[in-house]
Every structure is written in C-alpha cells, then in structure tokens.
C-alpha cells in the first residue's frame, strides 16, 4: 500500500497538459476553472478550447481536465 503522500508524488497525481502549445502540469482532479485561476486569468474575456472543443464559461467549474489534454486559451488583441 502506498500512503497518501507517495500517491501524490506518483505520476497519476499530476496531469500533463499542453496549454497554448506549452507543457504544463496540474494536480489530478483539476477542472478548467482551476487552470484558469492558476494562470491568473479569472474574469477575463477569454475563450477556452479543450481538445478542439469550446468549453462554455458556465462549464469551467465542472469540466475535469484529463492527462494529455490540449488546451487553447485565447483573448482579443489588436488586429486589422
């Protein structure tokens, strides 16, 4: 049996994500809302795409992340 601390250190406890093309890890069980908070993007006019599907803002709190997820987070910038 592994105790809780070793379990937390095992690979299952951390999710490997690709966020805007960069590798990033987040604790297992994290939701989109946790990632957004982690990145200090709360309350911003952003849109999030998980594995090419848009996650509506209303579902950030209940959409669980999975290992290998490819996440895109976009916002408005100057353009012509």
């Amino acid at each position: 049996m592994t105790d809780v601390r070793t379990h937390e250190r095992s690979s299952e406890a951390v999710l490997q994500l690709t966020v805007n093309g960069e590798s990033r890890s987040i604790p297992a069980g994290a939701k989109i809302a946790d990632l957004v908070a982690d990145l200090k993007l709360d309350g911003r006019k952003i849109a999030v795409e998980r594995n090419l599907e848009i996650v509506p803002r209303s579902l950030y709190g209940q959409t669980a992340l999975e290992d290998g997820d490819r996440i895109e987070i976009v916002a408005f910038v100057g353009g012509g």
């Binding site: 966020v19 911003r44 987070i73 976009v74 916002a75 408005f76 910038v77 353009g79």
Partner: peptide
C-alpha cells in the same frame, strides 16, 4: 480585433 493565444 484579432483573436490570439493569451500570453501565459
């Protein structure tokens, strides 16, 4: 306006 990745 354009839509681009947020600078993380």
């Amino acid at each position: 306006v354009a839509v681009r990745r947020v600078n993380l």
